[in-house]
Design a protein around this nucleic acid. Structure first.
Lengths: 206, 206
DNA sequence: TAGATTGTTAATCGATTAACAATC
DNA sequence: TAGATTGTTAATCGATTAACAATC
């Protein structure tokens, strides 16, 4: 079993390798990748091993091969579809941010309660009413939901997404979500992160 | 020394306690708070101990006292000022999101290169040109910077913020930032989080 | 008192780091 | 070959969890 830490780092390695490939780099050593990713060489070697890619002591890892191995490991062959609920300021920013990043991971639908948004195409993503949620999720075979609604609505939205068959949630609402077993929730609590930085920005001055 | 984990949880506890106080709750037990925050009772007791708040075996913790103790611990008495660089879709959403949340932590300035934004007030936050960065940071005594510029500009922006005296960075750009010793960087990598959820949403189906 | 919770220490768990033979 | 890196195991580290006497 691979830990969440490793998955996160693999995602980061892929992004680094992709940009290196554009600069025509062909090989990389564990310590070089570690430096770029902010980890250790041993960590990189272990992570790389877990995706089944082998390097050589003389040339390190082939960038093309390693990128392909990571993609084989991280991506679903048939791709995965994402839906976003709550197209406020943050939701709209995320639509732009997420789409066109990975070919295998697309935001195919968004949902909102505002009449003015329903039926529109926002950041090349069609916006539906909340009543259409279950139908659209199932028709489009969406497996990942992004929750960007106010805290008070988040649990209700999460429950509906799970009932519709979503297996993973990226939650931006500052509340803990109760979900059925087997559903993975990743919390991205921006207020918490800001307070954390503020605390250490202060502490480090002492 | 208190770990980043604890700081994050304390921030979460405070938010939970604040909303409980609005519902006129007066006391809470460690296991109740743990359930709301998604941790264990022992964890809560340890965290609470670290802010120097004592409970009683019969009534648990007084919500008002605990909230005050956490705030004493997390907040700088004189408050802290935040600046945001890069007022794109995401930056603008964050301005709205962050401000008016905590009285002791305010976004007092934002910066962008676009002529159309400079001089404007965006989400009740004045927008300055990049040339004004050092001056404004120092005049407003900003200690925390939020980086929401494209990846290619992030290191340059981070360096300028650090030179101007910022001691903590909240980085939304998908790159690793090199900063002087003593500066705390918190990375909020949304693409990584989405890929992580997608991976586990897929795995859990097996 | 009896019973549940607190404060705190010891045991567990998992991730990171160090180390090193095998390899090119 | 000599030298640096890989693959992989053992040691370390730190956070979480379990446990329990003290408390109200």
């Amino acid at each position: 079993m691979i830990s969440g830490m490793t998955i996160g780092r693999l995602s980061l390695y892929r992004r680094i390798l992709t940009s290196l490939a554009k600069e025509n780099a062909s090989n990389i050593y564990s310590h070089q990748l570690a430096k770029l990713a902010g980890g250790t060489a041993a960590q990189v070697r272990r992570d790389v091993m877990s995706v089944g890619c082998a390097g050589s002591p003389t040339h390190g890892y082939n960038i093309t091969d390693l990128t392909a191995s990571i993609s084989d490991f991280l991506d679903a062959p048939e791709g995965q579809r994402v839906a976003l609920v709550g197209v406020g300021n943050l939701g709209r920013a995320l639509l732009t941010y997420f789409n066109r990043r990975r070919p295998k991971l697309n935001v195919v639908a968004c949902f909102d309660t505002a009449e003015s948004k329903i039926g529109q195409v926002l950041a090349s993503c069609p916006c539906y009413s909340m009543e259409e949620l279950t139908g659209v999720i199932q028709r489009e075979r969406v497996s990942v939901g992004v929750v960007t609604v106010p805290a008070d609505d988040a649990q209700n939205v999460a429950s509906r997404l799970c009932e519709a068959g979503v297996m993973g949630l990226l939650n931006f609402a500052p509340v803990r979500l109760n979900v059925p077993p087997g559903v993975h929730v990743e919390n991205l609590d921006m207020s918490m992160s800001l307070e954390k930085v503020a605390y250490f920005a202060r502490k480090d001055k002492d």
